Amino acid sequence: MFLNISKPVICTPLDTHRAGADEVKLWMARFDLLHPLVSGNKWYKLYYFLKEAATLNATTIVTYGGAYSNHLLATAAACHTLNLKCKGIVRGEAPEILSPTLHICMQKGMELEFVSRESFLTMKYRTGLHADEYHIPEGGYHALGTQGAALMYNAVKHLQPTHIVTAVGTATTFAGIVSVADARVVAVPVLKNMTDIPDRLKQLEVIAKPNDYVIWDEYHFGGYAKTTPALFEFMEQMNAQYQIPLDKVYTAKMMYAVRDRMQQGYFPPGSRVVCLHTGGLHGNLALGQKV
């Protein structure tokens, strides 16, 4: 199948803190390098959906997202490679000029249908086969997406992590990692006032104990896709020091949180911390545009 879930993932070591046996080791798992468009967690979240669609002989994939959705982009690219028709249901009215993300989606053959925000809310979690169309919910938010995201752990478990850190949007990736990891999973929500993560775990059919995870909810920088000069400066520093580009919506906020907590001495001596680069770099095409 196109999405090879056994593909090796580069894990880049970052600075260690403290010395000797007490040091805290830190890695960045470069899931963003798996594919230029089906990058990061999307590679895994789509896996079981597309596998089921093939089993059901679906001829068209339908999915949901906003004008800058990495999920729409990844789905369009995957369907293009698999020679599947695909349709993207886009939240909001059709703009005069398409976002860079939607422009690439159309180049990859995705048909775009714009719907009102009210209608989108009633549609975005549709799943499964309807006639010959197979529906994938927004962001892969479903147990199948969680099962796919859980496979990401196989790429990092050789590092024997004590902590795994991931940015959180729908919480699908977070739920998948929590379901299988022998480590404490750290969630960094990129939305303001995202207080329903425990409920989302239940909806995604993941049973977790309170000690299995922790939520750092103060690094959203004002809300989804909101930024500050300090965040952009941090992104530039990371790229200059490690040649690791971060996206402004997810991974930049996650890594900023990790650096801040490291400086506060959050991680116990001997900790082995793995940060998940979940891709989304095409979102940076909108840096100079309103998101």
Rank of each mutant, 00 (worst) to 15 (best):
D196M: 07
S271I: 12
Q160N: 12
A54E: 14
E52A: 09
I177P: 00
P100Q: 00
S99W: 03
P198H: 07
Q263K: 15
T122S: 14
K108F: 15
C86G: 03
F232T: 04
M28S: 09
T75A: 12
G270V: 06
F49E: 05
S99H: 06
G145Q: 03
W43S: 04
R30Y: 03
A76L: 06
T101Y: 01
V62Q: 08
V274M: 05
P13N: 13
L151R: 12
P161W: 00
A149G: 02
L159I: 06
T55F: 10
R259V: 13
V115F: 11
A53S: 14
H80K: 14
I5D: 04
Y213I: 00
N154T: 08
S6V: 05
A19M: 05
L246A: 10
T101Q: 01
M235F: 02
A143Q: 12
I136W: 04
K124D: 07
T122D: 13
A252H: 09
S6E: 15
K45F: 03
T127E: 15
T228H: 11
L276P: 01
A167R: 02
D132I: 11
Y266Q: 13
L50C: 08
T63S: 15
I5A: 10
R272T: 13
D22P: 05
A77D: 00
A286H: 07
V206S: 02
R117S: 15
H277V: 05
